[in-house]
Design a binder for these strands. Structure first.
Length: 785
DNA sequence: TTACGGTCACTTTTT
DNA sequence: GTGACCGTAA
């Protein structure tokens, strides 16, 4: 272990070698958090304090889980397969598969992703004749997921008004529908697993006796339910080793509860709190900037990053007149970084608050001929052709899955229209069965075409009985008519390739999971040595005196094949949406939202669109902790940079088809002057239209659009030109943002001014004729009142 | 059944 | 500005 612990700093060393007690590691950005987590596991095992099967490590993303797995096996010569390392959802799925009967689920239960869940909800509401104007399906989805994440079943939800009562009623109906169909949504995976452990004392005792070491990554992102699940597993005697950073909590909007850190500290009486404050990523000025910014937040556990690296380059700040100009500047700087700085494209990232901002930058990069990659967007398993193929596969495994059924019953089209489907849905409701099972009850022409669909599925099911997973997928794609359909489709070539890629994915899955290449897709193979263990009766409730040998439980780790290859592959498809870009891995400039950048690092980082209303985002003003979360987001963005950091904003920006005039982000006022280098003159807040008052309701006056003709005062909202020469142009009586009229071009708004006297020019964006530069001494511009 | 056109919304997102 | 979704016309 000397070499294991070598090169750890004192805090890291202390964290890795902590006694077997609850511990909270406050790990700042770039402080070696993952390294500590992995080394901790390796050290525990090497010292004989733990064996692989007693280790449970939880992460939020599959990527993080994979990284942990691979770095661990590089560190440890021993077999890591006995460990449970995965996402909350992945681990819960694993447990539910093993104990599906105790959890009240069929062995072949399917997982609904967010889109599946929404269509399931829509189908439910349609069947119940619920007004989807009054009760938007999306809102119901949010309501249900939120309740589940609080650990609440319909009976437990507090509902006072009739509106919420309706939601509760629909929540109850949705649960029944899911149960009948044998499907679970994402939060259900967690809640079911939580309830399984909570209600089943012997099972709980079994897992508590097993997982003596529980390690949690990104603890600040856990929600209430996840924390409750962890507490159940920890019981009275197991240590939780939680690593997190309250300053990087940026997912409150999806239920993350930073409060879990304080609760954990209190409830587990944590005596081991270690702060990792040594940063190995960023140069001094960058870190100073980040520290100064985050110091403006009030509710913090308190932490200050330091570095041994020198100051490095100052943080460069640029004010542009328009978003186009901002993009132009970014591209020029990128060019310089590549050509003069010798940076690889992939070492450069352009970050923005919202996805809509990427378009202008992309456009400019294309024109400059610089390769780039945008993160986000459609992922592999979310593509419609892939989802269609998966739906056929799901129907083989579970004919009751109405979501899958409805998706492909008429795709490719086979004469089963909305009318027929409605008839079928009515029959299903009448007999309380799935749509597939209701087919015999539909008469007439509709019944005939539905019958042939039923025959198709039956045929696929029979023919694939002995086939391997890749063969099954290939067969389904062919016999379902999907491949033929896309062959004849004009733009179907890409989709066809994706279907082939799905077959490849199945092959890869089979080999990664260690199945034989010709293992039938629907066979359960028991491990040699593992007896077909009798499962725990579902009647074993808390308080039961049934004593079970631990070995008699179906433990997925002892018996990893409790999932058939097909069920495993379908889970995999739902739980891991896959990569999203064809250009993945290419040498390209990286474009992404700040959220997507969390956990990554780049030599040079551009943070763009630093304007009030955009970043911090206007919608965050209404949320309780909104501004603080925006500030944490900015903190995350800054700390992505290793050597070069650029901040930029634009006076005017095209957004949602309208030009809006923004003032620079308040975050600039929270950064130390000493670390910044303004490439454009910094215009003091006071010299603008009366400055900004932090008491003003932000999100209203500041986003007034002169071109929309708001109240007169809002005209003043247009910022004055930032450039010295433009200031002189302002003497001509024109200002950026002003509405003007031209005899030939009509109405427009001034977007920039430059020059003075006879050379003074104005850039005007005309409503009908686009943007033009006009010499003020020639053009007869009239100010519109 | 499909195709087109109008309407709407639009922060961040993993599982 | 743009994509998603829904309703109606062919």
């Amino acid at each position: 272990m000397p070499e294991l612990l070598a090169n750890l700093n004192p805090e890291q060393y202390a964290a890795v070698t902590l006694p077997n007690e609850p511990a909270l590691i406050l790990a700042g950005a770039g402080s070696g958090k993952t390294r500590v987590l992995i080394t901790r596991i390796a050290w525990l095992i090497q010292q004989g304090f733990a064996s692989p099967p007693t280790v449970l490590a939880v992460t939020f993303t599959n990527k993080a889980a994979r990284e942990m797995m691979s770095r661990l096996s590089a560190l440890l010569p021993i077999d890591t397969r006995g460990m449970w390392i995965g996402t909350f959802h992945g681990l819960c799925n694993r447990m539910l598969r093993a104990h599906h009967r105790d959890a009240g689920l069929p062995a072949t239960f399917q997982i609904l992703d967010t889109a599946d869940q929404l269509s399931s909800i829509k189908r439910l509401m349609k069947g119940l004749n619920v007004d989807d104007e009054k009760y938007p399906p999306k809102n119901l989805q949010y309501f249900i997921n939120n309740a589940k994440e609080q650990g609440l079943r319909p009976d437990q939800v507090d509902a006072s008004d009739s509106f919420n009562l309706k939601f509760v009623e629909l929540y109850r109906a949705y649960e029944q529908q899911c149960q009948r169909e044998g499907v679970v949504d994402f939060p259900e995976l967690l809640l079911r697993c939580y309830e399984l452990l909570a209600h089943n004392a012997p099972l709980r005792a079994h897992y508590q006796a097993r997982f003596r070491q529980i390690l949690v990554d990104e603890f600040q992102d856990t929600n209430k339910l996840q924390y409750a699940w962890l507490k159940l597993l920890a019981g009275q005697s197991n240590a939780i080793f939680a690593v997190g950073d309250d300053d990087q909590s940026i997912y409150a909007f999806r239920g993350a509860n930073v409060g879990n850190m304080l609760d954990f500290e209190r409830e587990f009486n944590v005596r081991n709190l270690i702060k990792l404050e040594q940063n190995y990523r960023s140069h001094g000025y960058i870190l100073d900037t980040a520290n100064a910014l985050i110091a403006h937040n009030s509710r913090r556990l308190g932490k200050n990053l330091r570095t041994d690296a020198g100051h490095g380059e100052p943080v460069r700040v640029y004010e542009a007149a328009t978003d186009m100009q901002e993009a132009g500047w970014i591209v020029e700087e990128i060019r310089a970084l590549i050509n003069n700085g010798g940076l690889a494209r992939s070492e450069i990232a352009v970050l923005y608050r919202s996805n809509a901002q990427s378009r202008t930058i992309e456009h400019t990069l294309v024109n400059a001929g610089i390769a780039y990659r945008v993160y986000g967007g459609l992922r592999f398993f979310e593509r419609q052709e892939v989802k269609h193929a998966l739906a056929y596969l799901r129907l083989i495994d579970n004919p009751n899955d109405d979501t899958a059924f409805a998706r492909v019953v008429n795709f490719p089209t086979r004469g089963i229209g909305a009318r027929s489907i409605e008839q079928l849905a009515d029959a299903a409701r009448l007999y309380g069965c799935s749509m597939a099972a209701a087919i015999p009850y539909v008469t007439g022409k509709a019944g005939t075409s539905l019958g042939s669909f039923a025959n198709l599925i039956a045929k696929i099911r029979a023919e694939t009985e002995r086939m391997s997973l890749p063969e099954t997928v290939e067969y389904v794609v062919r016999v379902s008519g999907l491949s033929e359909f896309y062959q004849n489709e004009r733009e179907g070539q890409d989709r066809l390739e994706n279907l082939q890629e799905l077959v490849n994915a199945a092959t890869a899955f089979v080999s990664e999971e260690g199945y034989g290449l010709d293992t039938p897709a629907r066979s359960i193979r028991l491990n040699p040595g593992a007896t077909a263990a009798p499962e725990l009766g579902s009647s074993a409730d808390e308080g039961d005196t049934v004593v079970l040998e631990a070995a008699s439980l179906t433990d997925p780790a002892q018996n990893p094949d409790t999932m058939t290859p097909l069920a495993g592959f379908l889970s995999h498809a739902s739980l891991e949406a896959g990569e999203n870009q064809a250009q993945a891995g290419q040498e390209a400039v990286q474009l992404m939202t700040v959220h997507a950048a969390k956990g990554l690092e780049f030599t040079a980082v551009f943070i763009t669109g630093l304007e009030e209303g955009l970043f911090p985002h206007e919608n965050s003003a209404t949320e309780a902790d909104g501004l603080e979360e925006e500030r944490r987001l900015m903190y995350v963005a800054i700390t992505r940079a290793k050597e070069r950091l650029y901040l930029s904003f634009a006076q005017s920006r095209m957004l949602h088809g309208q030009t809006r005039y923004n003032v620079r982000s308040r975050f600039f006022d929270e950064l130390p002057e000493t670390t910044l280098k303004w490439l454009t003159p910094k215009v003091e807040a006071g010299s603008r239209w009366g400055g900004r008052s932090d008491n003003a309701g932000w999100g209203r006056d500041w986003f007034a659009r002169p071109d929309r003709g708001g109240p007169a005062a809002n005209f003043e909202a247009a910022p004055l030109p930032a450039f010295a020469n433009e200031q002189r142009a302002a003497d001509t009586g024109f200002r950026v943002g002003q509405q003007v009229f031209h005899t030939k071009f009509g109405e427009g708004a001034i977007t920039a001014l430059e020059g003075s006297g006879a050379d003074a020019r104005a850039q005007v964006r005309f409503k009908r004729h686009g943007e033009k530069w006009l010499a003020l001494s020639v053009a007869k511009l009239q100010v519109v009142e």
